[in-house]
């Protein structure tokens, strides 16, 4: 309690009434975690471009973006869920499950045109939504912790995927989908364009709408949200549904890119997404975070890993480095919070 602090405050001091100056906003932005992470990203990109002529090439940049796109879609949903104070460990398995549903649906239809892909997309979205609603139901209605719920559905969704496929990947992906996934517009792959569109929508929706505002409030103080008449349970349902839906979208992108259901390929996705979200400055306890931060958080590991490969360093170093960086980022967030609370 800082009594003197209040004592020296003149009663008529109304600086807050003045419009925020650009300088003030800029200073606030420069004090944020995403800004520091952006500096780190810029330094990394600068460093790799300087030491290797193969880094800043169209081909390589395109690769980095393509590699990051699926994770970016998942990380958007994770950002929403984590700002609300939750977790979603199931997204990797839900991605696989949705991919299997889509592939099986398209295989069953047997044609190879836009309609087939549309049906596949629908199947993927329904699969993702169903898991999201299931997670949301267990967390908001049955009050099972998010960690346990999504850990459970992570196992179940993958198990069901194995049962549906008999344990081997479905490789009958229609050419139409592969063409969409490998195509590009002025040398920018469609996959990247789709990811950018989703990212921008995610950004605008989070920062400018009531849904986004409620997400922050629920994460910041669920009890206050309840008292203010916000239906916290319903909001959580929607957030996990969103996370599941985005896993369905990511499933289609992955299916198109790799032309297979990649049953074994997504075990690390949830942890990679959480890493990206945390690196981007979203608080582990909820209440604060940004999509732009998550974008930076997705690219730091991606650039690091790509740069190491190009320099001939074992890419496993990326895992080592990022592991420590994440711990440091969370530590910095905690210090910032305790200083504010004091």
């Amino acid at each position: 309690m800082s009594i003197p602090d209040t004592a020296v405050e003149p009663v008529t001091y109304m600086a807050g009434a003045a419009a925020p100056t650009t300088g003030k906003k800029l200073r606030a932005a420069m004090n944020s975690s995403p800004f520091y992470m952006l500096l780190i990203l810029i330094v990394l990109v600068g460093f790799f471009s300087y030491v290797s002529p193969n880094f800043a090439t169209t081909f390589n940049v395109r690769n980095v973006f393509l590699d990051a796109s699926t994770l970016m879609i998942l990380a958007i949903g994770m950002t929403y869920v984590m700002i609300s104070g939750g977790f979603d460990l199931s997204i990797g398995s839900v991605l696989v499950f949705s991919g299997v549903l889509a592939a099986k649906t398209m295989e069953w239809i047997g044609t190879d045109n836009a309609m087939t892909v549309g049906a596949g997309l629908l199947a993927a979205l329904v699969g993702g939504l169903a898991w999201g609603l299931f997670n949301g139901f267990c967390i908001s209605r049955l009050r099972v912790s998010a960690l346990i719920t999504t850990l459970g559905s992570m196992g179940s969704a993958l198990g069901l995927s194995y049962l549906l496929t008999g344990g081997s990947d479905v490789r009958t992906v229609p050419n139409t989908l592969i063409k969409i996934s490998t195509g590009s517009f002025f040398n920018v792959p469609y996959l990247v364009i789709i990811t950018v569109v989703f990212t921008i929508i995610g950004m605008v929706w989070l920062h400018m709408t009531r849904f986004g505002r409620h997400t922050y409030i629920v994460g910041s103080n669920p009890e206050a949200a309840r008292r203010a008449g916000i239906n916290v349970g319903n909001h959580q349902m929607r957030l996990y549904a969103l996370s599941g839906l985005l896993a369905g979208v990511a499933a289609m992108l992955s299916l198109g890119r790799f032309a297979t259901t990649t049953l074994e390929g997504h075990g690390n996705d949830p942890l990679d997404a959480i890493t990206a979200v945390v690196l981007g400055g979203t608080s582990l306890v909820g209440g604060s975070g940004t999509i732009i931060g998550t974008v930076i958080g997705v690219f730091i590991p991606a650039v690091l890993s790509n740069g190491f490969i190009i320099m001939g360093i074992a890419p496993f170093w990326q895992m080592v480095v990022i592991g420590f960086v994440v711990i440091a980022a969370v530590y910095a967030d905690q210090i910032k919070r305790s200083r504010r609370a004091a």
């Binding site: 807050g16 009531r210 505002r213 922050y216 409030i217 994460g219 910041s220 103080n221 009890e223 206050a224 949200a225 008292r227 203010a228 008449g229 916000i230 608080s283 209440g287 604060s288």
Partner: peptide, 17 residues
Amino acid sequence: SVAQDLSPAANMFMGRE
């Protein structure tokens, strides 16, 4: 009953945005 991470205005209109 306030959301510490939000601005005063966001708190004033909490639930009634």
